[in-house]
Amino acid sequence: MTKKYQIEIPKAALEQTDFQPGDHLALSVNHKQIDVRSARVIDQLPQIVFWWYALPAAVVTLIFYAFFCQRNAVHPIPLTGSDYSLANGTMFLGVISGLVLFITTFIVEKVKKTGPTKDFYWRSLPPLAIACGLIMVFSFSAFFWLLGQMFANASFDLYTTTVFAFVIFAAVNYVMINLAMTLTSGVVTNLLTIMIIGGMLFSMLTNSSRDWWKHNFSFLGTAENSASLQFNVTLTFSGLLMLTLVDYLFVNLQKRYRGWQVLTLRWLLYMLSACIASIGLFPNDPQFHILHDRVSMWLVYIMLILIVLVRWLLPEVTRQFLILSYVMGALMGLEYIIFKLSNYLSLTAFELLEFGLAFSWLLLLLQNIENLARFGHNLFLVKITPVEDKTK
């Protein structure tokens, strides 16, 4: 009875790895897929030396200590709620330190061609760095807001505050180095999601008018809202980040799938990214009102065109995705009819529902493209051959 099988690996596939003939490898089965990798677990993780993040953290901590020592040598330093608090100090210096290390690691990995960063273009670095910076700001704000609620009016002496600051700086530096060393299209998609959702929630929570929802969703980006800058910057750089993601995905996708269909899909997604960025660049203020409305309508038209034509534009599209696309398109159309013919939905509710459906479908589309791009040009044919047990 045959109990063993032999897999023949093409030479072209082996050359893209660090494996050598005779190496002992580990094989795992996950979701009916066979994954072959190094038997050493440490080889599967990014190798981050302690000093890479600890030394920059120590330097930034010294700057933090020197500033607060000169500024507030006697009084305790508040956790939050002051311009000279632990929250503001660590946010300002932590974002700078994290961004410097992210950019440095990206450049080193790109030049050495040792990690997934090598597949990104140099033009991808600015929007990726800005997106990471904005996400760090949102994360710091949420983290210290939570701490402020848990430890109201808390304050610490200079030395305790400095220790806290070092731990925060070291953690941020480690995360940013790890992010640059493991950057993939899936990670960029997650960054895009976090940036859009986090930025909008941040704008809703920090805006000056609690009755913003009585106007419309675009009110968050107008001059009447104190948090308009966060909202508009989020949309602008979300569009640029999506442009980077589309650029990366389609370069890999078009290595296998060619033709006017894929090229049309690529340019429609470029136009969609430009519309998202333009909505942030031209808020719904009086001087930009007409342009803002036009761009918003172009965004809707492009989404509808994508949903209708995805059957012909997306290679190897699945029946499940087609059904889901048409269901979402029908729901968006039904909401529009209900909004226009009745007072059941307010303008804000209509815009939020349409945004939720459109963004969810867009993420599914990008996920499908990511799968095709990931497996398209790295797909090799292998043969499984049974091996007879010679011990019998």
Rank of each mutant, 00 (worst) to 15 (best):
V163P: 08
L146A: 13
Q149I: 01
Y121W: 08
I96V: 15
V163I: 15
F164T: 05
F164R: 01
F156N: 00
D157Y: 12
F156Y: 10
A152D: 11
F156C: 03
V167A: 15
F151L: 13
Q149D: 01
R123H: 12
F164C: 11
S141A: 14
V100S: 10
A152E: 14
P127G: 12
L101G: 03
I107G: 01
Y159N: 09
V111K: 15
Y121G: 05
I103T: 13
A142K: 11
G94Q: 05
V108N: 03
D119E: 15
V163Q: 05
L147G: 12
C132N: 13
D157G: 15
V163E: 01
K110G: 04
K118N: 12
F166I: 00
L146T: 13
A165L: 09
T160I: 03
W145V: 02
L99Y: 05
T162G: 04
P126A: 10
W145F: 09
T117Y: 06
A165G: 06
G98F: 03
P126E: 13
T160F: 01
T104L: 13
F120M: 04
L128A: 02
F143P: 00
I130S: 10
T105F: 06
T162I: 10
V111A: 03
F144Q: 00
I130R: 02
L158F: 01
L99V: 04
A165T: 08
F144N: 01
K113T: 11
T104Q: 02
K110Q: 15
A152M: 07
Y121Q: 12
F102N: 08
L125Y: 04
G148Y: 02
V163A: 10
Y159A: 14
L99E: 12
Y159T: 05
F143R: 02
L147D: 02
D157T: 00
K110L: 03
K112T: 12
L134K: 01
E109G: 11
C132I: 08
A154K: 08
I135W: 03
W145T: 15
S155D: 13
K112P: 03
K118C: 00
C132M: 06
T104Y: 07
F151A: 15
S97H: 02
L101T: 10
L125N: 05
T160P: 01
I135P: 05
L125S: 14
A154E: 07
S97W: 02
F106W: 09
G148F: 07
V95N: 06
L99Q: 12
M136G: 03
T160Q: 13
T162H: 04
V100N: 01
S97K: 06
K112H: 14
G133R: 09
F138C: 03
T104K: 01
S124V: 02
V167Y: 09
T114I: 14
P127H: 13
I96C: 06
V95T: 09
F106H: 03
S139V: 11
F106V: 12
F102C: 07
L146H: 10
L128N: 07
P116T: 15
F144M: 00
L99P: 06
K112W: 09
A154N: 03
V108Q: 12
V137D: 07
Y159C: 00
T117N: 10
S124H: 15
K110E: 02
F120K: 05
S124E: 05
R123I: 09
F144V: 02
V108I: 15
A129W: 11
F138S: 02
L128Q: 14
F138I: 15
T105L: 04
P127S: 13
Y159V: 09
C132V: 10
L158W: 06
I103N: 09
S124G: 11
P126L: 10
F143M: 08
D119H: 15
Y159D: 04
